[in-house]
């Protein structure tokens, strides 16, 4: 491996690990004020919203293909199906769809 690539891998490893690790070490046994606890409990829902939009619209060159996949996932999940069924079902529906289009 070249010196440059070694430095890139090393640098990326450090700056990726530190933000992941610090909160677990720094927040250990500390009681945050209740307002901030609530904020942190809100984070997962907000993050999921931001992870889905807008990038779901760009995973495929045709945004309507992506939206059909999203709608399929939503409907399958809405029936109470577990995550694996939702994932495989959406892939299946899009695969069948693209075979016919």
């Amino acid at each position: 491996m070249s010196m440059t690539m070694t430095a890139i891998v090393l640098g990326m490893t450090v700056v990726t690990y530190i933000p992941r690790m610090l909160p677990f070490v720094l927040l250990k046994g500390k009681e945050l004020p209740s307002f901030w606890q609530s904020i942190l409990q809100n984070v997962p829902y907000a993050t999921l919203g931001a992870l889905i939009f807008p990038s779901i619209l760009t995973f495929h060159e045709d945004p309507s293909f992506a939206l059909i996949g999203a709608a399929a996932a939503f409907l399958i999940a809405f029936t109470g199906a577990n995550i694996i069924i939702t994932v495989l079902g959406s892939i299946g529906i899009l695969t069948v769809l693209s075979l016919f289009l």
Partner: peptide, 17 residues
């Protein structure tokens, strides 16, 4: 191509309940 939906389907599946 279709598998590109997988991670988004998972995010949606986590959020919907």
């Amino acid at each position: 191509e279709s598998m590109g939906i997988a991670l988004y389907a998972m995010f949606i599946g986590l959020l919907v309940p």
